[in-house]
Every structure is written in C-alpha cells, then in structure tokens.
C-alpha cells in the first residue's frame, strides 16, 4: 500500500468560453483502486476523464483546480474502430506503441506486442498474418485498443464507456478481461459509464455526476443501497429489472 494517492483531482473546473462545463470536481485514487464515474450525457464525465489525460477538446479550458498525478495514464474510448488507424494492421499498431513508449528494439517490441495480444485472448492467427481493424469484430478491436493502452504501462487506466458500443456477451468478456488485468497488473482505474450495474460490479467507489458536478460519492454498495441524492435514486430506478434466471448459478 502506498501512503499517498497516485491521482488527486481537486476542485477541477472546466469551461468553454463563458460556459462552465465542469465545476468543483474532486476525487483521489490509490494504487489498484477503481473509481466509477456515472451520470447521463452532458454531465461532464468524459470531460473530467479527458482533463486527467490532458486531452481536452478544442475550446475547452481548465479554469480552476489541480490534477496531481505521479504516474502515466492511458485511455480506452467508446468506439474501438474510431480509435484505431484503419490503414495500419493491428499488431503493427500495438508494436508501434510498445516501440516508442517502452523504448525497446523493434524485435523486442514485436515480442512484447504478441505477448500482450495473447494476454488479451486475441486469436493466435494474428501472429502469422496481421489484419486490418476492419477485418476484426468490434470486441476484438476493443481488445487491441486495451492492448495499446497497456503497452504504455499505465499506472492509471481511464475507460470512457468502453463497452457501450458492444453486444452484451462481448461486453461481459471485455469486462472480465479488464478485471483480470487489473488484478494482475495492479493499475488504478477510472471507469466512466451510464450503466450503474456495470459501475457497481467493477468499481469499489462511485461518483455520481450531474450537470458538471459530483452530486454524490462514496462506497459503491452503500451508495446504491442508501442513495442520498434524488438523482442517484432516479438513476437506480431506471435500471430495468430482469427476473432471476432459473437454474443459473446463484447464491
């Protein structure tokens, strides 16, 4: 256990011109910890994440607060196809990031890239014949994106709705992969989602955001069971219930 948090966001405010988009957002993150940012569109979740990475969209500026971080961060975006180069084969893309970020030889970079792909459960056939993003499924592309993020050896992994564009079965696999990797590599994680069920299973702490500020934060389970803010309650109510599946592995 490290004594000091590896990421500290204090009183963060972001604005586009005179319009305030995020105000007074603050949280801290220890090594290996995961934090969920939940809220609806326009609540400032993604902007907060981008501010941590230093990748604010044009026109948006940080007008107040501090972001303190001692480690590298890497980010996974919602649409895996859009975050890959369509004209470059995927293994090459992973290799490229390893080569520049880990500063090893080309040959070593390829070995590391292939190890990463294996760790993420991508097909072995990629080792012989490299393929373009368009030749892979959405779930496979997202695994490539995760491999690229991990190639940066991040201390913090930032996830911006990484499974929203994917089917439920694929989503389940990707979430399982992220959980497993987090246990193996012990990175901290900030997970942005509008799906409370996902946030609750993946994260130990939750922050609920509405219109640019955090309305409620705390331990995931207690927050969901005893929500204090009506907005949190509303988000919980809008999770559509499903009946228990008979014969499933339940408690």
């Amino acid at each position: 256990m490290s004594a000091s948090p590896i990421l500290e966001v204090e009183e963060l405010s972001l604005a586009a011109g005179s319009k305030t988009l995020v105000s007074g957002v603050g949280f801290s993150l220890d090594r290996g910890e995961s934090l969920g940012l939940v809220g609806e569109s326009g609540s400032g979740k993604s902007l907060t994440l981008r501010a941590i990475l230093g990748l604010l969209p044009r026109g948006v500026e940080q007008v107040g607060g501090t972001i303190k971080s001692e480690v590298r961060a890497a980010m996974i975006f919602q649409d895996p196809r859009k975050s890959l180069d369509p004209l470059c084969p995927v293994v090459r893309q992973v290799e490229e990031v390893v080569y520049y970020r880990q500063q090893v030889s080309r040959k070593a970079a390829r070995t590391i890239a292939l190890e990463l792909l294996e760790m993420l459960g991508l097909p072995d056939s990629l080792k012989q014949t490299d393929r373009y993003p368009s030749q892979l499924s959405g779930g496979q592309c997202q695994r490539i994106v995760i491999a690229i993020a991990l190639a940066c050896k991040p201390g913090i992994l930032l996830c911006d709705e990484p499974t929203t564009a994917l089917d439920v079965t694929v989503q389940q696999q990707i979430l399982a992969t992220i959980t497993r990797l987090q246990q193996e590599l012990d990175f901290a994680m900030v997970f942005v989602t509008h799906n409370l069920a996902i946030a609750a299973t993946l994260c130990s702490k939750l922050c609920v955001m509405k219109q640019g500020s955090i309305v409620e934060h705390g331990d995931a389970l207690s927050l969901l069971q005893h929500p204090q803010h009506p907005y949190t309650q509303m988000l919980i109510d809008s999770v559509l219930p499903l009946p228990e599946l008979e014969g499933s592995a339940s408690v």
């Binding site: 439920v168 079965t169 989503q171 389940q172 979430l175 799906n195 409370l196 069920a197 996902i198 609750a200 299973t201 995931a220 389970l221 969901l224 919980i236 999770v239 499903l242 599946l245 499933s248």
Partner: peptide
C-alpha cells in the same frame, strides 16, 4: 444472452 446482462449487486 440472459446471463451476460450486468446485474445490480
């Protein structure tokens, strides 16, 4: 399909 749906704890 049904078992892949994320559930609330």
């Amino acid at each position: 399909l049904l078992s892949a749906v994320p559930k609330m704890p």
